[in-house]
Amino acid sequence: MTEAGRGIRLNDQQRLAWLRLIRSDRVGPATFRDLLNHYGTAAAALEALPELSRRGGAIRGLRIAAREDAEAEIAALSRLGGRLVAIGEPGYPAHLRTIDAPPPLLSVFGPEEIAARPAVAIVGARNASLAGRKMARKIAEGLGEAGLVVVSGLARGIDAAAHEAATETGTIAVLAGGLDHIYPPENEPLLQAIVASGGAAVTEMPLGWSPRARDFPRRNRLISGISLAVVVVEAAKRSGSLHTARFAAEQGRDVFAVPGSPLDPRAEGCNHLIREGATLTVGADDVIEGIAPLLGRPPAPPPQLEDADTPMATRPEEPDDTARARIIEALGPTPTSVDEIIRETGVAPAAVQLVLLELDLAGRLERHGGGAVSLA
């Protein structure tokens, strides 16, 4: 299944098991990774879920995604012209693989090739001014002429202007809902034009999923994760675009901001970013110059995440009650790094990870950035 130098290719049964696992209750990207690394295959992890949840102290049983539901999602996605792409497969954005807890599966419209090209995100206000939309188009056109893919969130205003300007040179729309629930609906023709011109649409959400307010920060995290840099054009003080910039900084991406009048509330966020250290930009050349050292440099290797063809022959030894009690005692409401838990308890790393999985699947653990955890 592994092709030397080219990542992985899941077979149909592995892809089905991956989909069932990530669609099961309480299995997010970080939990998915730990389950796969511990059990070797998604199929083996699925079998282990009920017992893990019980040992973690779950009050109610864990809902595991049904095989027929996963098969129906794959079939419906195929009928729409989309496909599921697993982390490490061709078509999965190379830089997205390197963020903390990347999505194990993406639903994708569009060709594999665009995911391998270097990308820059352009984001900003939905209620953008004419000048702001003009600036977004200008920057997007310049980036496209330089061979860069433009990434944005298909929202009204700045996002739409950036996508429109980069449709012919390559753009990726990151969605907060399923591929069959385009938001806002009036931008569906724009998305069709993007895909028809060789661009792409990606989401980590299932088909049928209507985006909710809390889904947009997840989308913004992917926008910055796919990109080498984020350019913010008009953003109010509490704009979602500032969340994208924050995610970019956490992910080690460069942040650029277009300055604006202090009298315009839509410029307040950009001016704040510049004061905090973002690079002031008035055109694509500023961005291209800023990321020049990154171009041509391969992304860092992603965290190991591979579904073996068969389950592991031997499992790490299960922690005894004393070890389990020490791990739980070390946890509290304050986020603590897993490395610190291992160091302070003296319990083997594999045993610590297993107990954290149990608590996570029982709904008793919260995960935080940088690999920290706390009791819910």
Rank of each mutant, 00 (worst) to 15 (best):
E317W: 01
A213L: 14
L148H: 03
A44P: 07
P259Y: 09
R218I: 15
A176K: 00
L148R: 01
L154Q: 04
P184R: 11
L16I: 04
R79Q: 15
A48C: 04
H163Q: 09
T167V: 15
E234L: 13
D180W: 05
L273M: 06
M205W: 07
P102F: 03
P316W: 03
A325R: 12
R214G: 13
R218H: 14
P302N: 03
A146I: 00
G252K: 02
P302M: 02
T203F: 09
Q304V: 10
P184N: 09
D34F: 00
P311D: 04
H163I: 07
Q13D: 15
V230N: 07
M135C: 13
E68N: 12
R221P: 02
T336I: 14
A323F: 01
L46H: 05
G7E: 14
D180C: 04
L294F: 06
Q251I: 01
R23E: 11
D360H: 13
R364N: 09
G178R: 03
G296K: 03
A162K: 11
A201Q: 08
A131C: 08
D360V: 02
L35M: 05
N11A: 10
E73G: 03
S197Y: 02
R364A: 11
K134I: 08
E276P: 00
G82A: 12
I223N: 07
T322G: 10
R67K: 14
R315T: 10
P333W: 01
R297A: 12
Q13S: 14
R26C: 08
L190I: 09
I172W: 05
G296A: 01
S239W: 05
L175V: 10
A173V: 09
L207N: 02
L143H: 10
A76S: 13
N11K: 01
S210I: 14
H272T: 14
H368Y: 14
G199T: 08
R218M: 15
G88C: 04
A278N: 05
G28H: 06
D321E: 15
E340S: 11
D69F: 00
Q14F: 02
A131R: 13
P206Y: 10
V149K: 07
V85F: 00
A173S: 15
A165K: 02
G61P: 02
P311N: 03
P349H: 04
L365D: 01
S53Q: 08
Y183D: 14
V202T: 06
V373I: 06
A162G: 12
G5A: 09
I87W: 00
A17D: 14
A362S: 11
P206D: 08
D254H: 15
G81H: 13
G369L: 08
G363A: 10
T314P: 04
S53I: 00
G198K: 11
V355W: 06
A176S: 10
E358G: 04
